[in-house]
Each structure stands twice: as structure tokens, then as C-alpha cells.
Design a protein around this nucleic acid. Structure first.
Lengths: 211, 211
DNA sequence: TAGATTGTTAATCGATTAACAATC
DNA sequence: TAGATTGTTAATCGATTAACAATC
């Protein structure tokens, strides 16, 4: 089993490689990728080695080959379908976020309990929560995003899982009760900011001292 | 220097402790905290030990004492002032997000280059980008949030840093060029989702096999 | 007392980094 | 060739987990 960090690095490399390709680069050395990501050149080579990607001792790596191999590993062929539950400010922001479609991710539908929300946002239908189960099953959706208030998150999660969802991106700052076969990625915005503030403050406090 | 992960765990404990306190709990054992967070009981005790917090061999830890100690370490006294640049959908979502004020974090002002955005969102003033430097200096702000398009992120970052900001929460999916004394936390929503999808898909592929 | 719980020290594990060999 | 670069193996580092002692 590969680690999450490793996969994230591979995604990073791929993103950079697409950009380099569009700029006309044919080859790339580990140092180029290191500069463009938060990774050392050594780590880049190690990752590629681990991924079974080999370069050329003199000329580095071929961009095309690299992209192809990474796509093979990361599985970047079909469009990835996801649903979203919770059409509040954050939910809507995600529905309008351009970054997803650029990466082949499509929010197929959003769900809410508030009838006032029903209709469309951008080109995405907003449906009653009761229709989630059917929608997930008929469209064979495996991934969901939770942007509901904390209190509702566990309930929505349970509904998702019982409908066949296998992975959840959760924006509610609570620990979801789950089973090992379900993948959960948590995004806790308050915690990110609190954490940042902590290091800013201690950095201030310890200015000039050894940490 | 303590690790980011460690600090995040301490924040988690504190959040749970506040909730337990409001429910009337006076004491808590490491197992309670483990259940409420994504941490083992052993790790909880280890963390407390490292933080210089001691419990009682029979009765666990006193909730009040625990909160006080954690506040001491994490520094949770005054309101934390931050600014935000980029009043798009995500920026606005953050401005309306209730979780921040609950944790004593206040977005003091937001900035944008689009005059149509100027005015107020919720009770937060939206100002021209040119006023950022003055605002940051006169209000002694140390933390900023970047929610601008990728292309503008580095420029906004530079402006922030030259104005005196020491820590940045960055939502743009690029690597910001910086110096070691600046703290940067990146939130990359596409990457979180891509990563999730990867593990969902491989989980599907390897159903029943050894990973 | 017996059982539950803390808390420390040692072992393990995984990931990163260093060293260096290989080769284009 | 000499220099740049890859790529592997070993060393290091940090964090987590295990074992077990202490004690209320």
C-alpha cells in the first residue's frame, strides 16, 4: 500500500509536467521538478524509481513518457464523477470552482434539504436529499463531498455510504464514524488557520532564539 | 521545534475538551479523547506527557486543567486577526464561515482588485488591494489568506510579505516562492479530491486482494 | 486488594536523506 | 574524457507503537 503523501507528490509532478509540456518542454531533469514542487530532486528520483519510471543518465526524463506513466499509475482516463451534499456558501464555491473540471473531475449533482436551494447552480442540478440514493446508484458514483453543518455531517455520511459511496471529502470539522473500507479525506479550514497562527505566533515569540 | 501534526492533535484535543466541558464533564480519560479524535489513547497520553500535562493514575485528566494547559501552549487568549485577499466564491465562503469566529479568529478585512467587490460582505469591509499595506501595518496583522486565481497568487503573496505578514493560508494550487521565516499552509482542494479518487479507485480495483 | 489508568523507556516502522556507484 | 545526471543501497531521522512499570 502506497502512502497518501507519495500519491500527492505524483499528482504534483503530473500537474507540473502538463504545464511544462504546454510550454514546449520535451525533457526534464529531476531538479526542474524539484524547483516547481516542494520536493527535493533526490526525492523526485526516488519516487520515479519506486514508480518504475526510468530516466536517462544524461538527458533526464522524457516529459511525454513521464506523463503517460503517471497517468497509468494515478489512473487518469475517464472523467471522475462526484456528488456534493450541502449547498451552502462553501458547497456553492466548490460547484463553481474551475480547478475540478480542469482535472477531469465533474460534480454531477448536489443535494440539500432546503427546497429553496433546488434547481441549478452553474450547470449542476441541486436535488432533494431523498433523491441521493437513487442518483448515486443509477450513476454509479463512488465519491462524495460533504459541506453540511457539523450536526448533519454524520447522518449525510451514513446515507452516502449506504448508497454505495466509497470515498468522502469531508469539510465538517468532526470525526466521521466509519469502516476501514471507506476512504475519508478531511479538510478542516479552521484547523489549518489555527495551526498557521500558532506557528506565526511562536515564530514571533522565538525570534532569534533556537526553537 | 514541534511538528505540525503534533500541534494539530493538541488543537483537536482542545476542541473536544470544550465540547465535553459544555456537556458537564469534569474529568476525562485518554480513551475518551481517543474516541473523539483520530488518535489512539496511547498517543494522547504521549502527547500530554510531552506537553508537560500530567493526569491522575486513576481518574484520568481534569478537563479544566487540560484546557488551561492547552491554551497556554497553543496561545488562545486574544482574538486572532487575519486578512483575506481574493473576494471570489471561495473568499466569500470563508468570510461567512462561522467556524472561525467560534475559534476566536476574525477576518478584519478583505481585499480585491475589482471595484465592484468593494463595500461589505457580512460585516467585513472589502477594500482595494492598494490599501492592504497600510491596513496590515496599522492593524499589526500577521496572518493572511490567499483566495485569488493562480496567476495572481505569487504577486499577492509578495505584497503581503512586504507589508509585514508572517503566515499565509494559500488556496491557490501553486508553490509560492518564499523565505524560511514565513509560514505557509497550503489548501489544495483539487489535490485532496484527486487523492481521494485515487484511493477509491485502487480500493475498487484491489477488492479482496492484499494491497 | 484488584482493576483501571497513567506515563516512561525501548522497539518498530516508515519515510527521507546521504553516500556513492553507474552511465550517458 | 569530464561533467552531469540517474538510481540504488545504506544511514538517519522522526514519529508511532509496544511493553511494562507505577500508582491511585
Amino acid at each position: 500500500m502506497v502512502s497518501k503523501k507519495y500519491i500527492i507528490r505524483l499528482c504534483r509532478y503530473r500537474n507540473v509536467l502538463y504545464r511544462l509540456k504546454s510550454m514546449g518542454f520535451m525533457r526534464v531533469v529531476s531538479n526542474n521538478l524539484a524547483d516547481a514542487t516542494d520536493v527535493t530532486a533526490l526525492q523526485v528520483r526516488k519516487d520515479f524509481s519506486l514508480a518504475g519510471i526510468t530516466g536517462n543518465k544524461k538527458g533526464g526524463y522524457r516529459v511525454d513518457e513521464l506523463i503517460e506513466k503517471l497517468n497509468q499509475i494515478l489512473g487518469k482516463n475517464e472523467i471522475q464523477k462526484v456528488i456534493l451534499v450541502g449547498v451552502g456558501k462553501i458547497g456553492i464555491a466548490l460547484m463553481y470552482y474551475k480547478g475540478f473540471e480542469e482535472e477531469g473531475i465533474k460534480i454531477e449533482a448536489a443535494f440539500d434539504i432546503d427546497p429553496q436551494k433546488y434547481g441549478k447552480q452553474k450547470d449542476i442540478p441541486v436535488l432533494p436529499l431523498e433523491r441521493l440514493r437513487d442518483f448515486v446508484k443509477t450513476n454509479n458514483i463512488k465519491t462524495g463531498i460533504i459541506t453540511v453543518p457539523d450536526m448533519a455531517a454524520q447522518q449525510v455520511f451514513n446515507l452516502m455510504i449506504s448508497s454505495g459511496i466509497k470515498g468522502v471529502l469531508n469539510f465538517a470539522p468532526i470525526k466521521l464514524r466509519s469502516t476501514p473500507d471507506i476512504v475519508i479525506n478531511n479538510v478542516n479550514l479552521v484547523m489549518e488557520l489555527e495551526n498557521l497562527i500558532y506557528f506565526v505566533n511562536t515564530g514571533e515569540r522565538n525570534k532569534g532564539e533556537i526553537l
